[in-house]
Structures are given as structure tokens and as C-alpha cells.
Design a protein around this nucleic acid. Structure first.
Lengths: 331, 331
DNA sequence: GCAACTTCTGTAATCGTTTACAGACATTAT
DNA sequence: ATAATGTCTGTAAACGATTACAGAAGTTGC
């Protein structure tokens, strides 16, 4: 590979001058600048970012750490993050934690070891409850899950409120025996549980069943199968992420129960398929792309200005009513 | 941050010795090794990977360059790649090209500038047709799209054959006025078109319509709407990726045409929703996770042994028959 | 007792950049 | 004429690791 030394030699100047030209620093004569640029062009020189990162003590990379990129929520968020990173000349390191605190720790270390400029991070429940213990010195924006302690920027939706609204809607439709499927290892699951219970309590009801599950279609499927066989059978199911929701739908279909008459189904996250299945599904749509962009924007701002006060941005989920829960009034 | 110098000082040895201990090199006395490890522990020392990367002239990172991570095909592939990378201590750089050759070029440069150890790469049509012009010196595994020229490892499915089988199936079901929706900017689209035409030709038929589209739901939707209004109207549609397929389904639903009687619909890529929509969709399922793992495995092998002969692995897609095309015999 | 070898450790160069510092020269102010 | 200032460029020291080389000390063989 050609290095800055080769360019310097070819242009008959020192490496310092080459560096100055490339960084667009002042105090370089037009003729020399011209000579250097020509040499760069001729040799096809490209600066080594590893060397630059070492000397400058900071890189143009940022880390994105999510639980599973296959969860449509994180797929969309990561795409938004990547877009903005690209626009600003940053490259993205990607890691999946699988809600596994140990894997999470390893990744956090790895990101630090690579000296990433900043981090966008969706912590496991354990990490979000003991956030300061992580000892993150990196500029970090937390997404999807609130952390209690610790100064850190966050982009979230109000999960309690969103789950409350969704549950409220089910109750208004006349469903009374509600079961909830929640993410097992994230605080998000807990918060949605709180909203669920709150709405029920206000109607003088209690949850019929609540299950805390790892976020896979299969687990949602199995849990729902079990629910449908239990007595008394729930007449509505709330699934708090798109994977559990898909599994629940599959189980209900297999059981041959007519939606929304015999059973109602509602969940979190708008995906390609929620409007296309039969019946279309009522969901809380999170503004995923907005969340990703906002997180990245906040990170960029903090990199610019580390003294900024910490900010917590709460975006609003949108309730999309569809046939899977509409047994009363509208078509 | 604490550096190797701090550790050396704390342990009363030279940096060379610390390095030797950490690299598990021979010729270090047990007592010294012990002292060093204690100092490492006590100071919480972690080697700086940027510095190591510079000195060693190679990093433990690999680049993954796909057209759009939101395409479920690439989501799954990337997850598989990441899993294996993680197991082997590699970190992943992620980039989306959006089938844009210019963005692609920038990313390829960026990956090289970061001195990634290797690359897993899904080239645009332009790039796959002039692969040698990219001048890739990195160990590279190409996925999803065959490249003609150039020595490079590849992991693919036989697209011509897969599209042929799918088309064949439609014809056997008695559909005769077939329209095809193909990806516009990838060779994959072209290959699937060839399989489509071949099957039709063998039945003495010609394609009714063929459209080449960017891979978005919206474009699939709009194209299908147009198709449904054209005369003569197609009686079956083949959509060669999951995004176009989703758009097509949406348009057919809106038009109120009964599937599979009035119109048949088949496509590529098994996703969460293809079995859940009404009616469930006939598709060619690509072994996405296998593709990702295989690609990463081949890359790791090449890193181990650069002299390996170049290999082209062709995996087989699986035809999954579902109601969206079954109007003849089965339920 | 001396050569030859093995074991252990440190010195210093190196990877490819950036940048503090200093020096050369030109211009302007006094 | 001298000082002060501004412009341009090069020398060399970093950044934090790895590693070639050399040298010290200990062991073995004759």
C-alpha cells in the first residue's frame, strides 16, 4: 500500500505538508498544494484510517449494539442509524446481544477496545437496571429501554402509556379475559406490563395470564398454544413485540379460532405483514426510523459538544386499529 | 486509558515482556508471567485494538456490504455472518449500498481504508458485471449474485433454476398469462428472469409482462396495480423478492381479486409473514442462515490460507407450495 | 574450564498518521 | 535599519502496540 511517505517523496515535500494539504489546513502555498494533490491522485493514495485513529486518539466509527437485528424494530432502527452515519462519514460496528448480559459485556468491551467514537445501545434488563456499573466512558445514546441511574442520552417511547392505550382499546371492545405476552429480558417488557395492568385495574379487572418470554416467534407460538388450552381461556391476547405477535397469530390460526370474534389479538410494532395478514392486526406502531435518526443525531451532537446536558427524548407510538380487535362497531 | 506501558511499569518489566505474556509466547518465567497478569488484572488493562491493528497490519474486523439490511434476506444473512464472526473474535462493519454503485464504491474504499481483514459482499449489477474493475485486493466472498469475471469465492443459489421451478409450478396449475416483477439493479433479477422465460418458452408461451423495479414494497404495489388494470390482465404474478411480493399482495387484495382463483401469486424468500397472510404464499425459500454461515466460513478459511483455490458454492432453494397458487388439486 | 546452547528479558525500531516546534523567508511597522 | 509579524515548510516526537535483535544468566557437554 502506498503511504503518506510515498506521496511526500513523489511531490518532493515532507509528510507534514502532505498531511496539511489533505486536512485542508492553512499555510500551504498554492503550487505545493497542487503538487501534492497531483501526487495523491497519481499514486491513488488513501489515508490509513487505523493509523489516523491511533494518532488522533479517535476514530470515525460508531458502535450499534442491539438485541437481535432480525427483530424488525431493530432492523429499521439500524437502517436509520446507518443512513445518518454514512452521511456524516462514520462507519458502523454492529453487534447482537441476544439479551445475554455476558455477550453484551463482551461487545461493550470490544467497542471500547476498537476505540469507537460513540455508541448506540439497547441494553439488556440487567444492564439498564445497573447502568452505572457498566462504567461506560463512551458517548452513548440508549434506545428502546429506559435506564434508571446514570447520565446518558435516551430515545424511547412511553411504553407504559402505549401498552395502556392498547389494553384500553381491547377493554373498550368488550374483551375481559386478557392475557399478555412480554419480553423476558428487557425493561421494555416490564414497562408494557405495567401499562397493561394499569388499564385492567382501572376497569376493575385483573390480568388473566402473563408470560415473560424470550423474543422468538416459536416462544410466542408455544405460549399462545398453552394459553388457548387453559381454562378459562383468554378472549384477547396482547403480544408486546412483533415476534411474539407472529407466534400468537400462528397459534390462534391453527386452533381455528375466528379473529376477532372468539379472540382478540393486538401487539407492538408495525411490520410489513401486520396489515397483510388475515385479519389485519391492531398494533402500536413505533416510529422506528425516527428513533434511529434521532439517536444518531443526538450522538453526533454529543460528539460535537460533550458538555451538552443529557437529554431524554420520548416519541409517541401510534395506535393503528385493525380488524383483529374490532368486534364491536366499525368494519 | 491505561496502556501497556502502565502495565509494564506496575509489574516492573518491559513492554516487550507484557506483550509476550499476553500473546502467550514462550520464554517467560512463571513468576514474571504471574506478576504481569496481576498487574493487568489490577489496572484493568485492555489492549488497544487500533494500535495493534496498525502494528500488525491487519485487524480483526470484517466488512459486510449488502444492498439493504431491511430486506429480510439480508437481515437473516447478516445475522448468520455476525454469529460466526462473533464466535471467531471478529467484529462486523455494516454498510448498505441501496444498489447504488457510487455508494458501493465509497463503502468498498472505506472498508479498505479501515483495513478490514475480509469482506462479504453483495455487489450491484454494475459491480458484478465488471468485478475485476473494482480491483478488490481484500479477501472477499460474494453472496447472492454471481460475478462473471474475476477470481473470488461465491455463495449463491441457482436463480435460473429456482425461477424456472416456480414458473413451472404456476404453469402446471393452469395459469397462462404470467407477469414477472424483477429486481432492477441486481444480476439476481436478470437470472430469475431467464428462468421465468425459459419455463414459459418450454410451454410455448411468452411472458405477458415483465417489470424491472427497485426493491421496495411501494414499487411492487404500484407495478401490480398497473398490471391489474392492463388488458389482457395477467392471471398469475411472480415477484422475485419479498418486498415486491408484499407490494403485489397488497395491490391484489385492494383490487378484491380472489387468490388463487382469479389470480395466482408466487415469489421469492420465506419470511415471517408468507405463511401467515391470507392466503399463505407459495415461495422459493432461500437458506439464508446457511448462506451467511457458509460465506463467513469460506472467508475465515481464506484468511487462514490465502492460497486456497476459489470456490463457488451453490445452495438449493426450496419450493414451498401454499394456497396462493393452488387452484387445481390440493386444498 | 570453555564452548555451545537454552532460557529469559530489555532496547529500540516499526506500523502510518498528526502536530508541536522551530526555522527560513517575506512583508510591514517603527 | 531593526523589530515584529505573517507565511510556508521541515524535523521529529508522539499515539500503543509488536517484534527483531542483543545480551545476561544458567545449563549441558566435552
Amino acid at each position: 500500500m502506498t503511504s503518506i511517505k510515498d506521496v511526500a517523496r513523489a511531490a518532493g515535500v515532507s509528510t507534514a505538508t502532505v498531511s496539511r494539504v489533505l486536512a485542508n489546513k492553512p499555510y500551504v502555498s498554492p503550487e505545493v498544494r497542487q503538487r501534492v494533490l497531483e501526487a495523491v491522485e497519481r499514486l491513488g493514495y488513501r489515508p490509513n484510517l487505523v493509523a489516523r485513529g491511533l494518532r488522533a486518539q479517535q476514530t470515525n466509527t460508531i458502535g450499534l449494539l442491539v438485541s437481535d437485528i432480525r427483530n424488525p424494530y431493530f432492523t429499521d432502527v439500524s437502517r436509520a442509524v446507518e443512513d445518518l452515519a454514512y452521511e456524516h462519514g462514520f462507519t458502523l460496528f454492529l453487534g447482537n446481544t441476544d439479551e445475554n448480559p455476558q455477550k453484551e459485556t463482551l461487545y461493550l468491551q470490544s467497542m471500547r477496545d476498537h476505540n469507537v467514537a460513540g455508541l448506540i445501545f439497547s441494553p439488556t434488563r440487567q444492564a439498564s437496571e445497573h447502568f452505572t456499573a457498566l462504567n461506560l466512558t463512551l458517548p452513548t445514546v440508549v434506545i428502546d429501554r429506559a435506564v434508571r441511574e446514570g447520565d446518558v442520552d435516551m430515545v424511547l417511547i412511553d411504553n407504559v402509556e402505549a401498552a395502556y392505550r392498547l389494553t384500553q382499546h381491547l377493554l373498550e371492545q368488550g374483551y375481559t379475559r386478557l392475557a399478555g405476552l412480554f419480553g423476558e429480558m428487557s425493561v421494555t417488557g416490564r414497562e408494557r406490563q405495567r401499562g397493561f395492568e394499569k388499564a385492567l385495574r382501572e376497569h376493575g379487572l385483573a390480568p388473566l395470564q402473563m408470560r415473560f418470554l424470550p423474543p422468538y416467534i416459536q416462544t410466542g407460538y408455544e405460549a399462545t398454544r398453552a394459553l388457548l388450552q387453559s381454562q378459562p381461556r383468554p378472549d384477547a391476547i396482547l403480544a408486546t413485540n412483533s415476534l411474539l405477535l407472529a407466534g400468537a397469530l400462528k397459534a390462534i390460526r391453527e386452533a381455528g379460532l375466528p379473529l376477532p370474534e372468539a379472540i382478540g389479538l393486538a401487539g407492538f410494532d408495525e411490520t410489513t405483514w401486520t396489515p397483510l395478514v388475515e385479519p389485519p392486526l391492531t398494533v402500536i406502531a413505533q416510529p422506528t426510523y425516527e428513533i434511529g435518526r434521532m439517536a444518531m443525531r443526538m450522538l453526533l451532537e454529543r460528539l460535537e459538544n460533550p458538555a451538552l446536558p443529557y437529554r431524554q427524548v420520548i416519541l409517541k407510538g401510534q395506535l393503528i386499529l385493525r380488524r383483529s380487535t374490532l368486534r364491536r362497531t366499525e368494519g
